[in-house]
Design a protein around this nucleic acid. Structure first.
Length: 406
DNA sequence: GTCAATTCACATGAAAGAGACCACGGTCTAGTG
DNA sequence: CTAGACCGTGGTCTCTTTCATGTGAATTGACGA
């Protein structure tokens, strides 16, 4: 019935998209892009390179531990050095050096010791079932694979703090001790972490072996962010698309978030997309603001939607309490409301212990903000504040209703 | 009024269970020569 | 004789429960001024 009009509209959207493309090459702004040149990280790259250089002679290199805030170029720099070394290696015609890159934060990878080792085997082009084998079998297979010849293996564990948090530091210990079981190959580990305090919680033995060398990546300041953005923007956008002050604003926003360059690039990209959708020909300063909001919003709603049902129930309980204008929400209140909700929707009721954990996880995800307070004789509890801004709240409620009632 | 003990309502930890998934090896079956 | 189907065992993973211990300040009640 509205077919005709619909088609016209779609047609318009498509054609405007084609004719009015602000981007020259959008992938430059995506987070997995590796640029030719890395701005403002020369010193760190040199350090990494000089630490890893002995590998080119087939010698084992020191374990290296790198830390710095998110988006300070850690992963980028390490990958850059890796690629350069591999290039050099090819020039020399050697094959006695291999890198294994594992990002411990990716959901399917992290979580367990088993999967991290399995992922390493994957990186080496081996195959291993996703589950079903004893963990030591997996280690055995890994050892078998790398010990076939004399070679240096450099394992890059990105976001290693996540892995240690989930598992324990035992697996790093096992990894460092693997060398004694190897006859031919040698292993070195590069650990990359966002958390500066991560090291403090480690077993001293692990700590000393992992941080034979240490490197800090300082956060970018606003000026450095501007430089980075300029270089990328030039490649990403067509000429004259960026309005005056856009880069500066972008950099300022990101600098506020601990100088997160990834964030800055995201902002710029999303701003471009927004402007494009509005069929504008320029990216204006206002677009950065909208982009900032949109990124937040998308992130949160995404979580609301993807989280398991029990989580959604808990969130719905907290949300309804909040809607009833109850200023101070505590764990007990949420639990009671949650129980009612479960009965209404015929869902299983979990124990308070579990709900407490779920709330803690929401805190981690940033949907709520909790603070453990003691109310004296009224006991100890979490004080819960919802972190969803108004318009997002409505959307979230919509999503929750849909997935809980239907 | 002051001080230490009490007490609440959870937080936080550790361990273990349930149910799903999976690999592996052994056994059975049907098809082939 | 052999390939494939089928089973039992033993392993992991995730979510959850059970049991146990910890905790910070309002409250209480004894005490002394």
């Amino acid at each position: 019935m509205i077919k005709g009009c619909n088609m016209d509209k779609l047609d318009k959207i498509f054609s405007s998209f084609i004719s009015n493309n602000l981007f020259k090459n959008k992938s430059v702004l995506q987070s997995n892009y590796s640029p030719e040149q890395i701005t403002h990280r020369e010193a760190q790259i040199e350090s990494v390179a000089s630490i890893l250089a002995p590998a080119l002679r087939g010698e084992r290199v020191s374990n290296l531990f790198i830390y710095g805030n998110t988006g300070s170029g850690k992963t980028l720099s390490v990958r850059y050095v890796r690629d350069k070394i591999l290039e050099k290696l090819q020039e020399l015609g050697g094959d006695y050096l291999q890198f294994i890159y594992v990002n411990c934060k990716l959901k399917k990878v992290a979580d367990t010791e088993y999967r991290i080792v399995a992922e390493m085997i994957h990186e080496l082009k081996g195959s291993i079932p996703a589950t079903g084998l004893p963990t030591d079998q997996v280690y055995l297979k890994f050892i078998e694979m790398i010990d076939v010849k004399k070679q240096v293996i450099i394992i890059i564990l990105d976001e290693i703090d996540e892995a240690v948090k989930k598992i324990s530091d035992r697996f790093i210990y096992t990894l460092t001790r693997l060398n004694s079981e190897l006859k031919n190959a040698q292993i070195s580990i590069i650990g990359i972490s966002n958390s500066l305090t991560f090291m403090d919680h480690l077993d001293p033995r692990v700590r000393s072996s992992l941080s034979e060398e240490e490197l800090v990546f300082p956060s970018y300041n606003a000026l450095q962010l501007q430089d980075i953005l300029r270089v990328r923007a030039e490649q990403a956008f067509k000429e004259g698309v960026l309005e005056e002050g856009v880069i500066e604003k972008c950099a300022a926003y990101a600098a506020r978030e601990h100088g997160d360059a990834r964030r800055a690039l995201d902002l710029l990209r999303v701003a471009g997309e927004i402007s494009e959708r509005e069929e504008g020909t320029k990216i204006k300063v206002e677009h950065i603001d909208s982009a900032n909001q949109k990124i937040e919003k998308d992130k949160m709603l995404d979580i609301v939607e993807k989280v398991p049902k029990q989580f959604q129930l808990v969130l719905a309980a907290a949300l309804s309490l909040h809607k009833n204008k109850i200023e101070e929400i505590f764990t007990g209140d949420v639990y009671n409301t949650y129980q009612d909700l479960c009965q209404k929707t015929r869902n299983e009721v979990l124990t308070q212990r579990r709900v407490s954990d779920i709330l803690a996880e929401f805190d981690m995800l940033g949907l709520i903000n909790t603070r453990v307070i003691s109310k004296g004789r009224q006991g100890r509890t979490r004080e819960i504040k919802l972190m969803l801004p108004g318009p997002i709240q409505d959307k979230a409620e919509e999503i929750l209703q849909k997935s809980l009632y239907l």
